[in-house]
Amino acid sequence: MKTALKVNGRTRIVDAPGDKPLLWVLREELELSGPKFGCGQGLCGACTVLLDGQAVRSCSTPLSAVGKAAITTIEGVGASEVGQKVAAAWVDQDVPQCGYCQAGQIMSAVALLSANPRPGEAEIDAAMSGNLCRCGTYHRIRAAIRQAVTGQVAGSLNPGGDHAG
């Protein structure tokens, strides 16, 4: 079945069954391997992409459900101002350990800040709690989101760091 998708600002035609999860359409048909496979059941968030700005788990979103929605993957995160800020903060704070979860983390953070430009601590935790990080980079995820909000490089960079106070 041929389907037209709007991905990272471009229209792409894919030939795939309607029940194929968007994750595998992106990874296999469109060679966008930024979104990751972690659980396949909406439990880990590694596959998170944006559909019209909303964070969705692409592993549990069939191709047929995408419709005309604009898809943003990590590869296209720089197209929005919020996306740029978040990605820059992620580099500044050196968030990744293994890095496998980070594309999903970043997309969830972008969705959060697009809807709520000044989230509080509890709102950050709530919005990010669908994204597992097996390595435990959570302190820096919080720090990077705060940096994206305030524009200030707040130090998680010293031991004790961001939560020392």
Partner: peptide, 16 residues
């Protein structure tokens, strides 16, 4: 991390 920018850009790095 030397790969941090590539990870944040979603570049293919992993076995998968």
């Amino acid at each position: 991390g030397v790969d941090t920018p590539a990870i944040v850009a979603g570049k293919p790095l992993f076995g998968i």
